[in-house]
Simulated scan of single mutants.
Amino acid sequence: MTIELPDVIAAYFSADKTGDARAISECFTFDAVVVDEGNTYAGREAIRQWMANASTQYTYTVEPFALEEDGARSVVTSRLVGTFPGSPVDLRYRFVLRDDKIAELEIVP
Rank of each mutant, 00 (worst) to 15 (best):
D99E: 14
A15Y: 02
A10N: 10
A103H: 07
G71S: 06
L91T: 06
A66I: 04
K101T: 10
G86I: 06
P85E: 09
D70T: 07
A52P: 05
M1E: 12
D90K: 08
T59H: 14
A32W: 02
K101E: 12
I3D: 03
N39Q: 15
A15V: 04
P109I: 03
V8E: 07
V34F: 04
T83F: 04
A46T: 05
L80W: 12
M51I: 06
E45N: 14
R79E: 14
L97G: 02
D31C: 03
R98V: 10
K101M: 13
S78R: 02
D36W: 08
P109E: 13
S55I: 14
T83G: 03
C27E: 02
S74V: 07
S55L: 10
D90C: 14
I102K: 01
E69R: 07
F95T: 05
A15D: 07
V33K: 11
A72Q: 13
D100S: 15
Q57C: 11
E68S: 13
R44L: 06
V76L: 11
T61W: 07
A32Q: 05
F95P: 04
L105G: 00
Q49H: 11
R92E: 12
F65V: 03
E37R: 13
D99Y: 02
D70R: 13
T40N: 06
D20I: 01
D16E: 12
Q49P: 03
A103W: 04
E63F: 07
S14D: 15
Q49G: 01
D70H: 07
A10D: 11
V89N: 08
I102Y: 02
D31H: 09
A42D: 09
A11M: 02
V75H: 02
P88D: 06
E104P: 01
Q57A: 14
R92P: 04
E4P: 00
K17L: 12
R79H: 11
A10R: 07
T40W: 05
L67C: 12
R92H: 15
V75M: 08
V96A: 09
V33C: 09
V108Y: 01
L5V: 08
F95Y: 11
V108L: 06
A54Q: 11
W50V: 00
C27A: 12
P64D: 05
R98H: 12
I107W: 02
E37L: 15
Q57R: 15
S74W: 05
G43N: 02
F30D: 14
A72M: 14
A15I: 05
E4L: 09
E69H: 12
A42E: 15
S25K: 01
D36A: 08
D20Y: 01
A72L: 11
S14Y: 09
T59Y: 13
S87E: 01
N39K: 14
D90S: 11
L105D: 00
Y41F: 15
A23D: 08
V8K: 03
R48Y: 11
T77Q: 15
I102G: 01
T59K: 09
V96T: 12
D16K: 09
A54V: 13
D7W: 07
R48G: 01
